[in-house]
């Protein structure tokens, strides 16, 4: 009984191999992974200059609040302050490149007014502005503490600074879910193509005169596509681990990916059976997945969040229940499709 279905599933995978499309799929993912780390490293080095070695910003400080401000600036990592007696000398130093920025701090009407002058239009500008913001925020905190008696609420003490890498959050909440779900979406799209193409080329007729039922054909296609996604995701988990990003609960994670793949592939197959024109089917599938997936991210317990929390081990002891929920969802959709297939008039 299972034999013809397995044969069809094997045939599906064999065409993928012969067309070498699977290589393309893996290449896309590799590209995305490489490009997003490129992006993140680039952005982080712009926005968190502390994480980049060798940047020392020198700031010229002048004005009547200069002493207090200078003390704060000197406390900052990778920042150094220089005091100037007059604005003119500070500006001269800025122009000659002796300092990267000039802060003019004046006390007036119970406040400190700071005019920050930064160089225009070069790569360092962003870094300088970010560092100035850090220093000035600290300065604001110091000044606020002095006026503490005038405030109705005291600000909370900040937790200590850590040497945490900003890539951590990104790797687990963006990159990993991306690498896990992209194969799922591609699998769904593949099943749409597979079904519409059989209808279009007329080969489905040939399959149907063979001693297999329509349900068997759909089964074979769904199995092949749904099995592909967790296999690819598993490969990524291994690669990520190799790269130093340890993923916890890998099995639970693959089960979630597999269940979602079953769900999405079932959705794709249903659409393709209902509307065998590839253009319409692909469009409906893309919109459907986009809406469903985009909508799900608004939920408090969305798939992306589940994957991220499983991977960093931020799930309680009840996590098998959560995973089981996904399995139920996927299997229920699949069973529903199996019951519906005989009623969908396939290619008349």
């Amino acid at each position: 009984m299972g034999e013809p279905r397995l044969t069809i599933a094997r045939r599906e995978l064999a065409t993928l191999r012969s067309e070498k499309t699977i290589v393309l799929a893996l290449l896309i993912q590799l590209f995305i992974a490489a490009f997003s780390s490129f992006l993140v490293v680039g952005l982080v080095s712009l926005y968190d200059p502390g994480s980049v070695e060798g940047y020392e910003t020198t700031v010229g400080v002048t004005g009547d609040a200069a002493d207090d401000l200078l003390r704060v600036v000197d406390e900052q990592p990778s920042m150094a302050g220089v005091a100037y007696d007059s604005q003119a000398t500070a500006r001269g130093a800025f122009r000659n490149g002796e300092v990267d920025a000039v802060l003019l701090a004046d006390r007036r009407a119970g406040r400190v007014f700071v005019t920050a002058t930064v160089p225009d239009g070069n790569v360092r500008t962003t870094i300088v502005v970010v560092q100035l913001r850090k220093a000035l925020s600290t300065f604001e905190r110091v000044e606020r503490d002095r006026r503490g008696s005038l405030l109705s609420a005291t600000p909370l003490d900040l937790p200590p600074r850590t040497g945490s890498t900003p890539y951590y959050g990104f790797s687990y909440t963006v990159l990993l879910p991306l690498l896990c779900f992209l194969p799922v979406f591609i699998s769904g799209s593949m099943v749409v193509d597979s079904v519409t193409e059989e209808v279009d080329r007329g080969t489905l007729e040939l399959l149907r005169v063979a001693p297999v039922s329509t349900v068997d054909i759909v089964d074979g296609k769904v199995w092949a596509a749904a099995a592909l996604a967790p296999a690819q995701a598993g490969l990524w988990l291994v690669l990520l681990d190799f790269n130093g990003t340890t993923v916890r609960h890998p099995l639970a994670l693959l089960v979630v990916v597999g269940s979602l793949a079953l769900l999405v592939v079932t959705l794709g197959a249903t659409i393709a059976l209902l509307s065998p024109d590839r253009r319409a089917a692909q469009f409906l599938y893309a919109v459907g997945v986009l809406v469903a997936f985009g909508g799900s991210t608004l939920l408090p317990r969305n798939p992306v969040n589940t994957v991220a929390r499983l991977a960093v081990d931020s799930v309680g002891p009840a996590y098998p229940l959560l995973v089981a929920g996904y399995v139920v969802l996927g299997v229920a959709a699949y069973l529903l499709l199996r019951r519906a297939v005989p009623r969908i008039g396939l290619a008349d």
């Binding site: 009407a109 406040r111 007014f113 930064v118 160089p119 239009g121 606020r144």
Partner: peptide
């Protein structure tokens, strides 16, 4: 906070200036 000058004691204005040699 009602007391604005105590809550935000520092006011910053950022200026971008092109560095022109002397």
């Amino acid at each position: 906070e009602r007391n604005e000058s105590a809550a935000f004691p520092v006011v910053v204005t950022l200026r971008y200036v092109e560095r022109v040699p002397d």
